[in-house]
Design a binder for these strands. Structure first.
Length: 270
DNA sequence: CGCTGACCCTGACGGC
DNA sequence: TGCCGTCAGGGTCAGC
């Protein structure tokens, strides 16, 4: 489920409920996530106060005086704040109970997500080698052009490579390339310099638009407030195989690239 | 070093 | 109805 817009939606939704709160108790019902939840984690966090909630790539970083809690939602994860106690449902793997009431609850059916505690987030192996934020200043046409030289991979896979730029997942890679009119299979290293301005703008625009709509709910994504995202209605190619291109009417094509479904207009995108 | 494909896991859905 | 194959928004890792 979550790409950058969904994670950012979650961050914004949770911030008023969790920042400034003191953790009373952490309850781990199922530690077998992408990486096992450390047995020492609940004890380490008990009594800690959350001072900040930030996002880096698709990670949520809860800054506490006991270290930084890193949460990744994987494919199927979601975080919700519950003001009142609620019976855990299937796949509700982790609860963070706050002093004074309220619970932050992680649900993740496929368990590709992760919950980690670190004292040194900047140099954590999972974060250290990440590329620039797509909505930050470092991500511009010059950067992406240089990062693409001599690369033989398809531009779509290139955009989804977290070392190149973070946060661009399967939905928004297809959507951005449609907006930039670039064929997803075009070799990254063979794209003309002039096309990188529109491409970078397309990536930024589609992510910004999606954040404004509260992300994309395909199956089960809900933001921190439990609301689904509404960007699905704005998707132009994703999951539209066979339907007419909104620009030219040609049927949208679907092809598998690097084991991921890829959607594009074979007429508009070159 | 760059790149490909296997793999982690559960659930929904369509075909038979 | 039930079984089976396919697919799903994430990422790491081994191997060439």
């Amino acid at each position: 489920m979550p790409e950058l817009p969904e994670v950012e939606t979650t961050r914004r939704g949770l911030t008023p409920y969790v920042v400034g709160r003191t953790i009373e108790r952490v309850e781990v019902r199922e530690p077998r996530l992408r990486w096992p939840v450390a047995t020492a984690l609940p004890r380490a966090l008990a009594g800690a106060r959350i001072g900040t909630l930030e996002r880096r790539a698709k990670y949520l970083l809860f800054g506490t005086d006991a270290g930084t809690l890193l949460v990744h939602l994987g494919m199927s994860g979601s975080l919700r704040y519950l003001p009142a106690p609620q019976e855990p449902a299937p796949h509700d793997h982790v609860d963070v109970h706050f002093a004074g009431g309220g619970t932050l609850r992680l649900n993740d059916p496929r368990r590709f997500g992760s919950v980690l505690l670190t004292r040194t987030p900047r140099t954590h192996p999972l974060l250290e080698h990440l590329g620039p934020e797509p909505l930050g200043e470092a991500f511009d046409a010059d950067y992406l052009y240089r990062a693409s030289r001599n690369r033989r991979v398809a531009i779509k896979q290139h955009l989804m490579n977290g070392r190149v730029v973070v946060g661009v997942g399967n939905i928004y890679a297809s959507e951005a390339l449609f907006r930039a009119r670039i064929h997803p299979e075009r070799m990254a290293g063979r794209i003309a310099r002039a096309r990188f301005e529109p491409l970078v703008e397309a990536v930024r625009d589609v992510l910004r638009d999606a954040i404004e709509e509260g992300g994309t709910t395909l199956r089960n994504f809900v933001g921190g407030d439990g609301e689904p995202g509404y960007f699905r209605a704005s998707l132009r190619v994703y999951e539209r195989a066979g339907l007419p291109c909104l620009d030219c009417g040609a049927p949208i094509a679907r092809r598998v690239l690097g084991q991921r479904a890829t959607y594009y207009c074979p007429r508009c995108q070159r």
